[in-house]
Design a binder for these strands. Structure first.
Lengths: 346, 346
DNA sequence: TTGTACGCGTTATCAT
DNA sequence: ATGATAACGCGTACAA
């Protein structure tokens, strides 16, 4: 390319990048030649030289889990704006896979990484995180380290959920937890127990089902709950996908929602609003969360001195549709079976 | 690193890569030193030197559309096996975005690209495809060029769909098409018309709604169909996501599925099997399709001489759940003009 | 304003 | 079996 124009390589570089002052006429010549030859600077060579690849790694459990893609989209929104491209990795919740993927990303000189619901306290993982490559955590944070983090307000969200069901008259509320390794799941679990106690609901360990974020978990949980002699009148699922599993099992068991069972999800996936699903749920603005994480990452990438870690806690919002109602027996049989009208918000 | 061991750089390279014969003792020393220093060869430098990045670009309309992620997962399955990482790009069906993303991927020296339902006949796009970088198309192929392609058997699939509904007694069958730019949508449309004619069903242009692959398209389509004086007794949606929209609108209109309306989707997304959805649909093994595409790409990447383009057409399978039944009137559409309450959406 | 020369970290080639 | 050296294609300090 340099030869083709008769100019020096540096001149070409500068003409194209527009860094240094170069004669208008020269620039025109160079641009014209580049256009004609279909020349494009090699991003790889640039990365090697600059030690910056304009690339960010994104680790997720599994893209094909409906709970995930919105995060990615949010990240990408910011990434494209910044001229970055996403390197995507599925880890299937397997630490070894995660470690090897992170290793690969580091080898590729990614400018930074975003870990969505990934292990972040495993020593092996932490070792890789201790390097100089910036990273941001989403929905799963470390108990021992302070990192850039974007998560939902799990405490308030769960408190709202339980309080809402309590207000409807429920006293026996079942919970399907997320995986124990997830800080978000942990936080929600603790908030659940605390609120249950505060409100004087049944504190029955049988009402806790340890699950994860899959349809199967919800399905199995509901079948388990059905075996209880004192069944819950309401169930809070680990997320919407899980709630779908609960719904499914409930149908199978001949339990109507919300008449026989109230159900609350978390996430507000696009499908939750469908009349067939009609799931009351805790809305999480995932695309915004992804974007926020990417912004945090960019800040860290571009700043000279490492900024102090920032945690962004996104408020959640209870979206009321029609999967919840007063329990058939009025909750404790202490209140009339008065049916509350359910108003869905716009 | 080379200095640290006292050996030559080439020796280090060979010891780690295991390409050339190197003394066992030397190799041990090098490996030990690498371990101790946490040294890892730079993938970027390697890419520059080898002109291979072990990276493949994947272009999709939008990750957050539920129809997409399974493809990506299938691609990734093969990619990890081959030591490749995925560069993910969302194009939102915008040609200019697609072109610029492809340009970027090419700049990054991707070993190949997989285009999922992307424009592939636009001159601007074709110019980039004409280069030496291998690529594979998924679900949207060119009419003018023969490329590596993985798609579903749209002709047979649609034929099966229509035949099934016809067998149930339906004579007025509505179709929500995918976007006109999609070859898959086009093929299905043509197969629809042909089969409708073959079977002697109503060939009414009013029964064709030009939509796309979104919930909204299905929703709008159903509301449109409802305005027809002679309404369809069955609807085939562009895909499951779209079918969900049809379902939703049907609920809103007070139409029961399958009593008042039969509905057939396409894709068999995970959620279709839920009892609440219970959608009869044309099963597409997307993860396998993604994997097949990646295999095709790898073959092309690794072969010396460009292989002749191969098209892999994946057979579909009708999965019968409970969204279809015989029409209420036996299929002659001579139904009384009884007006159902129309509820306008919010 | 423009050109020269070097280095980024590899691998391939050639010589030892 | 190993070492020295030349690319790969860019950015940049420095010289002109």
């Amino acid at each position: 390319m340099a030869a083709a124009t008769g100019h020096a390589v540096s001149t070409v570089s500068n003409a194209l990048a527009g860094k240094r002052h170069v004669n208008e006429e020269t620039r025109r010549q160079v641009k014209e030649a580049a256009e004609r030859l279909g020349y494009r600077p090699s991003a790889v060579a640039r990365s090697l030289r600059m030690k910056l690849s304009s690339t960010i790694g994104v680790l997720v459990p599994d893209v094909s889990n409906p709970a995930i893609p919105e995060f990615i989209r949010g990240i990408d929104d910011i990434a494209v704006r910044e001229g970055c491209t996403i390197l995507l990795c599925n880890t299937d919740e397997l630490v070894e896979r995660q470690v090897s993927q992170m290793q690969t990303l580091l080898d590729r000189q990614v400018d930074g990484m975003i870990l969505i619901s990934q292990h972040c306290d495993t020593p092996e993982v932490r070792k890789l995180l201790d390097g100089k490559t910036p990273f941001v955590l989403i929905q799963r944070r470390s108990s021992r380290f302070r990192d850039d983090y974007v998560g939902s307000d799990n405490l308030q969200g769960m408190r709202d959920s339980v309080t809402y069901l309590h207000g409807l008259g429920h006293r026996r509320i079942g919970l399907v937890t997320g995986p124990g390794t997830s800080s978000t799941a942990q936080e929600r679990f603790e908030a659940f127990e605390a609120t249950i106690a505060d409100l004087g609901c049944d504190e029955d360990p049988d009402l806790i089902y340890r699950g994860d974020y899959t349809v199967e978990a919800g399905y199995d949980a509901m079948h388990y709950f059905a075996t209880l002699s004192k069944r819950p009148t309401a169930v809070i699922a680990s997320n919407d996908v899980c709630a779908l599993g609960v719904q499914d099992a409930a149908s199978e068991l001949g339990l109507s929602i919300p008449q026989d069972l109230s159900l609350l999800g978390c996430d507000d996936i696009d499908l939750a609003r469908l009349r067939r699903i009609n799931l009351s749920t805790l809305h999480l603005p995932k695309r915004e969360m992804g974007a926020a994480a990417a912004e945090l990452l960019m800040r860290r990438i571009h700043s000279k001195r490492p900024p102090t870690p920032r945690e962004i806690i996104i408020p959640t919002e209870l979206v009321l549709r029609e999967s919840c109602a007063a329990p058939a027996d009025g909750g404790n049989a202490k209140r009339p079976a008065e049916r509350r009208p359910l108003v869905s918000p716009g």
